[in-house]
Design a protein around this nucleic acid. Structure first.
Length: 421
DNA sequence: TCTGGGGTCCTAGGACCC
DNA sequence: TCTGGGGTCCTAGGACCC
């Protein structure tokens, strides 16, 4: 038995948790660079504000009430997420943190001693009490059905935010009401193809012959169909598997036309990616860089990427910056207004394997480990405490975050002082 | 003027091997 | 006339997720 716990309008809920004066107002959270809407409060949804809508368009629109917007504050959201997950871990024996605002809980044992919906309501109430954040709970025997149950819990207020879907009759009833694109694993493309085959709701998908699915789609959708039938194909993954790649990319606050600025940005992304790599206790051998102009612009589009394979896997920022810079030289073209760039690391080796290569011709730099450990330690106290000269000081290409809230839970200096009088 | 960032898995096709 | 069969590895691209 799985429970899927999903936070309601997570990012905007994090903002209102510390601004009770904003409760009941239409609020949106914006993507990096204040680009587009990525979270909406209940009231903002009711006004018809769509996910992914560009902020510069939304800002011009007329609404009966003023829209309150926040730049993404991932330090705050990440910390709030941890508090929610800790609460879940205290209540459930096994928890899979699926995303910043979602977790699967294993309810296998719970079933023997108490009513599942009751337990769901207890989860909901405890999370609300500990964090001031509301969540929905969907319960069923497969992850895909639990997702569907969660959908229903959010959509229909009379469920009180909790739906136990372990009963097959209820499953079929709910599936008949759910458009097929609401099913976890069915995206826009597949939904369109299914629609052309006259498969329009989840129940019709569930009842489609497996061989037919296999012939016209792939094993991924086959698993989805089996899961809808109550046959578990996806297990709870309590411990996250090691990452296979790490990406650091950003849109620029303003278009970049100068090579030196781009080099600074690439150095910064390379440094950040290396830091993440060390956080994963991995060494990488493949490094690549991409640059691109805006796909929305009327100017001719230019996008390109280049990669390089090192002889010896590394986790030293200096090696990774050097490789990334070489890649950038290969893809840079003068005369474009670049909108975005990024650095990707891949082909990972775990620490012990990498050390076998100590006897290679290309031995790692002396004291690399000590230096990187020190850097990471200093930068943990505050990002950007110690950085490479190549990253630049002015960083004019930095992303826009004009409506950033304070880091209420992680940075003391950010908390506004309330004065008497 | 202005449109996010970070991942995963699967498949097809090419290179290469015997 | 007539030119095989079977396998692995890698990469790019497409689909999905949040």
């Amino acid at each position: 038995m799985f429970a899927l716990v999903d936070m309601n309008s997570f990012y905007t809920s994090c903002e209102t948790a510390f601004r009770p004066d904003l409760a009941g107002k239409p609020i949106v959270a914006l993507s990096n660079n204040d680009g587009c809407v990525i979270a909406r409060s209940k009231e903002a949804k009711a006004l018809g504000i769509k996910m992914g809508m560009p902020w510069f368009q939304l800002r011009e629109m007329q609404f009966p009430e003023r829209i309150i917007a926040f730049s993404s504050n991932y330090e705050l959201y990440g910390d709030m997420s941890q508090r929610v997950m800790t609460t879940l871990e205290e209540m459930c024996p096994r928890v899979e943190v699926y995303s910043i605002d979602e977790a699967f809980c294993d309810l296998t044992g719970v079933r023997n001693c108490r009513d599942l919906a009751d337990f769901g309501r207890e989860i909901r109430e405890t999370v609300r009490r500990n964090t001031r954040i509301l969540c929905g709970v969907g319960i069923a025997q497969t992850k895909t059905l639990a997702k569907l149950a969660n959908r229903a819990a959010k959509e229909w207020p009379q469920t009180g935010g909790v739906v136990d879907l372990s009963n097959e009759t209820r499953q079929r009833k709910l599936m008949s009401l759910m458009p097929v694109e609401e099913v976890w694993g069915v995206g826009r493309r597949i939904a369109k193809k299914l629609d052309a085959m006259d498969i329009k709701n989840a129940l019709q998908l569930c009842d489609t012959d497996i061989r037919f699915i296999r012939k016209h789609f792939n094993v991924v959708l086959e698993r989805t169909v089996r899961e809808l039938r109550g046959e578990p194909c996806l297990e709870l993954e309590e411990f996250a598997p090691a990452k296979q790649e790490i990406v650091c990319s950003r849109s620029f606050g303003e278009r970049v036309t100068d090579y030196e600025e781009m080099r600074q940005a690439i150095c910064s992304y390379a440094a950040r990616a290396s830091e993440k790599l060390r956080g994963e206790h991995q060494f990488c051998r493949y490094i690549s860089v991409f640059v691109k102009t805006s796909p929305f612009s009327t100017e001719p589009y230019y996008g390109n990427h280049a990669g390089t394979k090192l002889l010896t896997p590394t986790q030293d920022t200096r090696d990774i910056i050097a490789a990334a810079t070489r890649c950038l030289e290969a893809v840079w073209r003068d005369g474009h207004r670049y909108q975005k760039a990024g650095v990707m690391l891949g082909d990972f080796f775990s620490q012990c394997v990498a050390q076998l290569n100590l006897f290679d011709d290309n031995a790692p730099r002396a004291n690399s480990d000590a230096l990187m450990t020190l850097m990471d330690k200093l930068n943990k106290q505050g990002r950007g405490t110690l950085y490479f000269a190549g990253q630049g000081i002015a960083q004019v290409w930095q992303m826009k975050r004009e409506m950033l809230s304070p880091c209420y839970t992680t940075k003391l200096s950010d908390i506004p002082v309330v004065r008497a009088n």
